[in-house]
């Protein structure tokens, strides 16, 4: 028996999600062999370094079929790897890539799929995993009813563990005899460096910022904090900010360690997407804003004054601790 972990890369480098998935695999089935499946061009040293996160082997699938992303090729390759390794568990990240591939792996393996795990499996009575439901308004346990299992892991759900080690790298040919049916014509990367769903810190702003021209103070603080930026729904609906920054029940659900919300009232649909954050700071001129009820720290004040002051304070703190 083995566990297969899908390792994602972007532009030839392994993504942080891979280290979370590997740590998850190591703890989910202690003692069981972990094989990392990597598709596409990634340098040898990065492949070997996956051993530091618990992979004993890396199976590297490379070639024309893996030049561009195709969920079908990736999903079927993973299922073949699972078959070859006699694996009963496949782990992927619950992000844009994992969401594209996991359902395809699950069908190919005839496996039950847990989407967005926030805990390790509990095997004391069957096989259950905790997830968020109702866009973060509630929690539930998912019991997997099948022999084979696929789990996608919610970002920031497990602290990465690293130790000495090097994985043995082998090339892997799943023998699929199919070519990608999705042709990738172009890839555009956003200028912001940290993708919002994976960010450990997020600075978010709402209609209280009054207009898109005022986002400089939000971006400045985000930069100082190494944080991603986010916004409320109306702000993205009216085009002040791009759609992918919209958080909440109808946007994306995030659970960073730190969520700073400025000029956001805290409507139920907004809270649903962010209340899994470890620490919430709310900055609002209105002491009655509902968001304060969901916050750990509150500042009643004008975002136009508070954000620059906070930025300055964080800068000073970072200088002092550097």
């Amino acid at each position: 028996m083995a566990t297969i972990v899908f390792v994602d890369s972007f532009k030839g480098h392994i993504k942080k999600s891979a280290f979370e998935s590997l740590t998850y695999a190591k703890k989910a089935q202690p003692g069981q062999e972990i094989i990392a499946l990597v598709a596409g061009d990634v340098p040898q040293d990065e492949l070997e370094a996956l051993g530091q996160y618990g992979a004993s082997k890396v199976w590297h699938a490379n070639g024309p079929a893996y030049q561009d992303f195709d969920s079908e090729i990736q999903g079927k390759t993973l299922a073949k790897a699972a078959e070859k390794a006699n694996a009963n568990l496949v782990i992927l990240p619950f992000d844009h890539t994992g969401k594209s591939i996991a359902p395809i792996v699950a069908v190919a393996m005839n496996a039950g799929l847990v989407s967005g795990a926030t805990s390790l499996p509990d095997t004391s009575n069957g096989f259950t995993v905790k997830v968020n439901v109702f866009s973060g308004k509630a929690l539930a346990e998912v019991e997997v009813l099948t022999e084979s299992k696929v789990i996608t892991v919610n970002p920031n759900s497990i602290p990465v563990e690293k130790e000495e080690g090097a994985a043995q790298v082998e090339s892997f040919d799943p023998g699929l005899n199919i070519s990608p049916r999705v042709r990738v014509k172009a890839v555009h990367k956003n200028t912001d460096e940290i993708p919002l769903p994976e960010a450990e810190r997020v600075v978010s702003a709402g209609r209280g910022l009054k207009g898109p021209e005022n986002w400089g103070i939000v971006e400045d603080l985000a930069k100082t904090l190494d944080a991603a930026t986010a916004c409320s729904r109306p702000v993205s609906d009216i085009g002040w900010r791009p759609h992918h920054e919209h958080v909440g029940q109808t946007g994306i659900t995030i659970r960073p360690n730190l969520y700073i919300a400025a000029g956001i009232s805290g409507a139920i649909q907004h809270l649903a997407g962010v209340n899994g954050s470890k620490t919430i700071v709310v900055i609002n001129t209105d002491p009655e804003a509902p968001f304060f009820k969901a916050a750990d720290y509150g500042v009643v004040g004008d975002a136009f004054e508070v954000l620059p002051k906070l930025n300055e304070a964080v800068r000073k703190f970072k200088e002092a601790s550097a």
Binding site: A138, E141, T146, I280
Partner: peptide
């Protein structure tokens, strides 16, 4: 089905 949802709960109060 492949999975069954159970033991629903609300997040701890802040």
């Amino acid at each position: 089905p492949g999975v069954k949802f159970k033991n629903y709960s609300l997040p701890p109060e802040k």
